[in-house]
């Protein structure tokens, strides 16, 4: 196990987009724009509600066609940091269509915590284009159970590496 802060397993992606910074900001905060691009291949976004203020919520429905019919997945989260045209931080959890985070009981567990992840969007203007840095943090450092989590994963990874 490494000393100090545990190695986080974040997704970090940088993109330079040929668009003004204010328009890129709207991609994340305007529901109509967000719906237009957010669905990964094969998924549509029928519902997106975004209150881009600190403490404001997001509710997003992702819909896809499967051999068993239409499948919906709902995600909700809370905006933690909102600095217009610069920085947006929000959490993301699976939820029901009313936006209630699926409790451990509903997921068939007597105790524990639902998985909460955190998305950080940073924008910077570079020569008239917009540099976007996206960070998706698997286990936010201040989330309940984060320490136990990281330790358990470290332990299991050590096991996996040696087996």
């Amino acid at each position: 196990m490494t000393a100090g802060t545990p190695e986080t397993k974040d997704v970090v992606i940088e993109r330079t987009l040929d668009a003004p910074i204010a328009l890129v900001w709207q991609m994340w905060t305007d529901p109509e724009h967000f719906k237009a691009w957010y669905g990964p291949m094969g998924a549509a976004i029928p519902v997106a509600s975004i209150d881009a203020t600190v403490g404001g919520t997001r509710l997003v429905c992702m819909e896809m066609q499967t051999p068993d019919g239409t499948m919906q997945m709902w995600f909700t989260g809370e905006h933690r940091e909102v600095v217009e045209n610069q920085r947006l931080v929000y959490t993301e959890s699976m939820c029901d269509p009313e936006g209630n985070i699926l409790s451990p009981e509903e997921m068939g567990m007597p105790e524990g915590h639902p998985g909460i992840t955190e998305v950080v969007v940073e924008l910077r203007e570079v020569d008239g284009k917009t540099k976007l840095t996206l960070t998706h943090v698997g286990v936010p450092a201040d989330s309940p159970g984060a320490t136990g989590w990281t330790m358990a994963l470290d332990k299991l990874e050590t096991h996996l590496a040696t087996s």
């Binding site: 970090v12 992606i13 993109r15 987009l17 040929d18 957010y38 291949m41 996996l160």
Partner: peptide, 26 residues
């Protein structure tokens, strides 16, 4: 433990779509 590796292609695909949507809009 390869969390990032799994999410990366999802985000790459989304950002590709954002890029082409932005070009289309403009």
């Amino acid at each position: 433990s390869e969390w990032a590796e799994h999410y990366r292609p999802i985000w790459e695909s989304r950002l590709d779509q954002m890029d082409s949507y932005l070009q289309e809009l403009q």
